[in-house]
Amino acid sequence: MSVRIGVVRFPGTNCDRDVFDAVGSVEGSEPVWLWHKERDLEGVRGIVLAGGFSFGDYLRAGAIARFSPIMEEVVAFARRGGPVLGICNGFQILTEAGLLPGALMRNDRITFVCRDQWLKVETTDTPFTRHYSAGQLVRYTVAHGEGNYVAEEEVLDRLEEEGRVAFRYVDETGAATDAANPNGSLRNIAGIRDEGGNILGLMPHPDRAMSELLGSGDGAPVFRGLVEAAA
């Protein structure tokens, strides 16, 4: 039997189809739409919050989305240990909802940034990153205006100590330099996981790294890991 994975759709979600296809490309998975106005998780075993501009994001990215009916269920699902992946706007929503610490501020360059980006996999201790090797370099696309990860120093220290920094922005040699940092994120943090390891939020798009034809196939292991964890 196939594993049902929910893809949440807010009205301004615009990477929903990309994520739906990425999930669907994993053998044994069945992507399912979850509409923001509903409360029914339709029996899904894993959930992805896709990128976009959930409610226009004029106030703050993800600020309004977290109050939608479906998010109450997503939060409860995550707290029960269900695998939840937040990509880009999904990461912003996860921080607004308090499922992940910190916040995503406007990029330090002020402007939106879309480019190919090298990342270092910092932890393999999540279902989403278990198919990578520790320290592996992968290439995804970043595309966001508010991806500047900030948190208090103590929070950052704790994330590092507990191995909860999942991805870091690096250059092609693996060095976490300022030049390699697309948005000013503290300590070049691109993605983090929660204490339990079942929630992952990241700004770069593994959903856009699913095919060599489009430039990179490096994102596929993330979705494979998600489906396996949900099975």
């Binding site: 615009n14 939106f112 879309c114 480019r115 696309t141 595309a143 798009h205 856009r208 489009l214």
Partner: peptide, 14 residues
């Protein structure tokens, strides 16, 4: 200019 444009969304951009 074009780094300010999302040129990948919808994942069709070869």
């Amino acid at each position: 200019a074009w780094e300010q444009y999302d040129h990948h969304v919808q994942t069709n951009t070869v």
